[in-house]
Design a protein around this nucleic acid. Structure first.
Lengths: 195, 195
DNA sequence: CTAAGTATACCGACTAGTGAGTATACACAA
DNA sequence: TTGTGTATACTCACTAGTCGGTATACTTAG
C-alpha cells in the first residue's frame, strides 16, 4: 500500500494540479498526468486507485492555499470590514488578468461533474466552500459586522458569480462591480445598519 | 448543403440539448446524440460540420427560451422592482429543486471550455449573458431604479453565483439568500436611495 | 411527356487514435 | 526472501470524424 505522504504521490498531485487547472478534468488524460509527473501510468495507479481519486486529491490540495490567499488579502487591507471585503475582489481582479488564470478549480470541476452529485471531488469542493464561508463569517464578526453569516453568504455568492461570469466574458470589470456590491452589502450591516 | 431550418436539424439540436444539459459536453459523444435523435452519425455530420458546431447550436437554441422564462417571472411578480427581482430568485429556487436541474448550461459549458476562450460556444454564451443583462437593466429602468446598468450587473453576478454554488452544495437556501441580497441592492437605488 | 442530370438527405461500416485501467516483471531494501 | 515501488507492454472500449454509396425528388433538354 502506498504511503499517504510519499514524495512521489506529491509529484503526481502537483502535476495533476497544473494540468487539471489549466485544461479541465475531462480534457486531461491519466497518461498526460503521468508524463507531466515524469513517471508511468502504472506508478500513478499504484498511488491512486482511480482518476476520480486523483481529481479529489487535486482539489483537496487546493483547499488550504486558496483559503490562506483570500485571508491574506482580507487581513492586509486597510480600513473597515467593507474595505477589507472589497480588497478581496480587487486582488481577485488582478489575479484574473493573468493569462493562466482559469477561474476557480472547485467550481469548474463541479460544473464538469454536475451529473454526478455524489462524486468525491464535489464533496471536497463543498467542504472548501463551506470552510471559506465560515472563515469569512468569523472575520466579519470580528470587525463589527452584524448578521455575519448572512453577509458572508452574500459575499460568497458574489465571488462565485465573478468566477463564473469571468469564464464567459473575460472582463474583470465584473469583479470590480461585485466588489462594490459586496461593500454595499457589508455597510448595510455595519454598526446600526439594517438590511 | 443542408437547410438551416430543416426538421431533422431541429431533432438533432433537441437531442443534443437533452444530453448536453444532462451530462455535460465532454461526457456526451456524437454517437450518443445521433442515437438520441434516432438517426446515424453520418446524417448528423451532414447537418453540422463538427461537434463544436453542434455545441454552439445547442446553446444558441437556449438563448431566447431562457430569456423569456426570466422575463416571465419578473413580469408576473407583484410589487416594486425589488419584489420583481426577488421573484426571479424565488422561481429559480423552485426550478432548482427539480432533480433534472443541472444549473446553467451556458456557464457549465464555459467552465468545460475554460481553456479555449475563443470557442464558438463561449461566444454564444457571452452574447446570451449580455442579452440578459441588457434586458434586466431596461426592466429596472422602467420600474424607477436608478443606475440600472450597475444594478443589473450586480444581479447578474448574484444569479450566476447561485448557478455555481448550487452545483457544489445543492442547497436552494443559497438562492433565497441571493434573492434577499438582490432586493437589498435594488432598494438601495429606488427613488432617492444611494448606494 | 419523358429521360438524363443534379441536389438533398440519409445510412452502414470504417479509420486512426485515445481513454481508463491492468498483467506481468524487475529492482532493491529490510 | 518478502514486500514496496517502479517500468514495459498490453487490453478493450470508446471517440471524432470520413468513405463510399443510395433513395428520393426536383430540374431541364429533347
Amino acid at each position: 500500500m502506498p504511503e499517504a505522504q510519499s514524495p512521489t504521490r506529491k509529484r503526481i498531485v502537483d502535476a495533476a494540479t497544473r494540468l487539471f487547472y489549466a485544461e479541465g478534468i475531462g480534457r486531461v488524460s491519466v497518461d498526460a498526468v503521468a508524463e507531466e509527473a515524469g513517471l508511468t501510468k502504472r506508478t500513478l495507479y499504484y498511488h491512486f486507485k482511480s482518476k476520480d481519486d486523483l481529481v479529489a486529491a487535486y482539489l483537496d490540495g487546493r483547499d488550504q492555499p486558496n483559503l490562506k490567499r483570500m485571508a491574506g488579502w482580507f487581513d492586509a487591507a486597510e480600513g473597515g470590514a467593507d474595505r477589507k471585503v472589497e480588497a478581496i475582489f480587487t486582488n481577485l481582479a488582478r489575479a484574473a488578468r493573468h493569462p493562466k488564470w482559469k477561474g476557480c478549480g472547485f467550481l469548474r470541476t463541479a460544473a464538469e461533474l454536475a451529473s454526478m452529485p455524489g462524486h468525491p471531488a464535489i464533496k471536497v469542493g463543498s467542504r472548501h466552500k463551506s470552510n471559506f464561508e465560515t472563515w469569512l463569517a468569523g472575520a466579519l464578526s470580528n470587525h463589527g459586522v452584524e448578521e455575519p453569516q448572512a453577509v458572508a453568504r452574500e459575499i460568497v455568492l458574489l465571488i462565485d458569480g465573478c468566477f463564473s461570469i469571468m469564464l464567459i466574458h473575460r472582463n474583470p470589470d465584473y469583479i470590480e462591480a461585485a466588489g462594490r456590491a459586496a461593500a454595499t452589502l457589508v455597510r448595510a450591516r455595519i454598526s446600526s445598519g439594517k438590511a
